[in-house]
Design a protein around this nucleic acid. Structure first.
Lengths: 353, 353
DNA sequence: CAATTCATGGCAACCGGTTGACAAAACGAG
DNA sequence: CTCGTTTTGTCAACCGGTTGCCATGAATTG
């Protein structure tokens, strides 16, 4: 017998089972192995490598597993494989309803493919975002960045480590899911033109927002095409409050129609203009972006360019998972369509009576 | 020298490093140990047991760790300790804005205490909820259930396994965080009474909702106290759509003021009543519950009983983490205050002209 | 019937930390 | 200067799976 170097199971440490688990919870593959009269590695194979063991043994093991109501220990599994069946989603601001649908889309997809979603927030700060991303990197198989605020380079660096999918922004060399604003914007601008507007104001979003620039470019292009004049205004922050604060500039701009970087701004702006006695859309038309939850609660309901945010979340998660499973390798950008949702806040301007 | 049983580092397996990591990413404590000239276990202690190693060695190790930009492998750590620095949050419906603030509160608290938040959704189904909970249980240190739909017994069973905190429901023997509806409700009912209303309708939420019952009881009690009549109506689902569908019943009820189980119902109800030509609040007063995002977008803005949802999320996370760190052991219910937010949708009824 | 292939299960090393037990070194006291 | 105590670091076992390699026996083939 080769005794020297085999401490093996013999000592068996009659010592206290230190973890003193609650009693039932945790069966291990070793327990199953004992019960089924096979080796633990066979159990492992039966449970994860379909077809690797005979169907007889398979059944034996499955029964034993069921009897002990076994559940794999994800950590034990993750340690040697490096796979966690988990992915991360980082959003700029959890309270911003824009992200609700994205979160939901990602969560649903994750769960349906047996993945777990880990959520983190960057509070609109590039630094926080990067920290959160690094933190998550250690525990997830992949990462989705929704409207990231950090540099392209940082994103690429992350993408080198683990699969990354970006939503709402285009980053060279990294798979992205981006609403193509052009369709929605041109519908909107055409509608404005048809209603006789001549001068369109665009209220921009945060300077780091890639999407804000795209929207502004889209508005410019569409206005040029329709021979309308486009003026750009800035906002302090992309919230209802920020929208209120832009009311002054909007009135000063002389525009009869306004598009805003997002719905929140539009809602704030509308509230403030109405409070000042203006009538929407008779005095001024307002068009938002995204069609967030609540956009139709306003009076009049908000006309807006809808981004299919839920779809974005789903698509991003799907791309990520496909990638993890070795299918879709392409790193390009996936475009999703936007469309104009015509509600009450836009229309023909009434001639001053 | 004691050679017999020390295979130790010698073999060093010149074989391919199978994981072939990307290059820089992953230093292990063994790398640090080698660099610092100490044993790996010393490194482990230096990094997690403050004061266990001499400050000289400590420094040595920290420098080496910094140089290799070491990051602990959470799985390797979780395996022997069972601690994951992660907790789960299960909500009934991710798209329901009621939960946005809860999620945000929990996420913020988690991050600030160096925990990671894992999010799951039950889609309002007790079965899905239980499955999700079980799934999460394996990977988290604790669980927060927001407005759970499953049985008390199931919740208690989970709580036996790992720390659980419940939001928006009271479960005997499990720590809970629950808005105390009474203050807000009595303020609301008193305000109704002061405005001359006599008959109040309450539109209830889902039958499994514990909170819906509490609110109905609160309304009944407050009405009794103010000598008003309370009638109860049912809703099909606690959404804007569900609210629209109750409009019929509301009108039939003869009530001049309505409280709804939540804001969504109130908003839908208001939309439908307005569409039918009624004026809020001149013809009927509407009061919602929760003060969700968007409740003030409506015209008139919605009067509502605010539940401090963000606080609930925070408080639940805090309780959970305190518990995990051995401080707060008490299993009672933590009440948070509700208050009436008086906006435009409630007021004195105008006598039919 | 012998030779070869193939399906199956076992062995043991490994993933990267943690930790109890213990030995060596440092320290303090008598 | 010696002995007991405390500090500091090492050893090796463990957490619970995964997987390359090998031995066995059955099935296939010449």
């Amino acid at each position: 017998m080769t005794e020297p170097q085999t401490p093996d199971t013999a000592p068996s440490t009659g010592s206290v089972k230190k973890h003193g688990r609650d009693g039932k919870s945790n069966a291990t593959i070793y327990d199953i192995a004992k019960l089924a009269g096979v080796n633990a590695s066979t159990v492992s194979r039966a449970l994860s490598k379909p077809g690797r063991v005979s169907s007889k043994t398979q059944k034996l093991i499955e029964d034993a597993a069921a009897q002990l109501n076994y559940q794999v220990n994800p950590f034990a599994r993750a340690l040697p494989t490096g796979k966690t069946n988990t992915f991360g989603l980082i959003v700029a601001d959890i309270t911003n309803p824009t992200f609700f649908d994205i979160i939901r889309g990602a969560e649903t997809t994750a769960t349906s493919r047996d993945y777990t979603l880990v959520l983190a927030e960057s509070a609109e700060s590039p630094a926080t975002e990067l920290t959160a991303a690094r933190r998550l990197m250690a525990t997830v198989d992949g990462l989705i960045l929704a409207s990231p605020r950090m540099d392209d380079d940082n994103i690429r660096a992350l993408a080198q480590d683990k699969p990354v999918v970006v939503i709402n922004r285009e980053v060279e060399g990294v798979p992205c899911v981006v609403p193509d604003v052009n369709k929605g914007i041109s519908e909107a601008i055409r509608s404005m033109a048809a209603n006789g507007h001549q001068r369109i104001a665009f209220v921009a979003g945060p300077p780091q927002s890639w999407m804000s620039e795209r929207r502004w470019e889209g508005v410019q292009a569409a206005c040029e095409w329709s021979r309308l004049e486009a003026v750009r205004l800035e906002s302090s922050k992309p919230t209802v409050d920020g929208g209120r604060q832009t009311a002054r500039d909007v009135r000063a701009s002389g525009a009869t129609a306004v598009m805003t970087y997002n719905d929140l701004l539009a809602i704030g702006l509308m509230q403030e203009l109405q409070a000042a006695g203006m009538v929407v859309p008779d005095d001024i038309s307002i068009i938002g972006f995204d069609d967030i939850f609540g956009a139709d609660f306003t009076t009049p309901p908000l006309t807006t360019v809808r981004s299919p945010l839920g779809e974005c979340g789903e698509a991003a998660a799907t791309r990520l998972l496909d990638f993890l499973h070795g299918s879709g390798e392409q790193a390009g950008t996936l475009s999703v369509e936007t469309e104009l949702v015509l509600r009450g806040s836009s229309g023909r301007i009434l001639p001053a009576k």
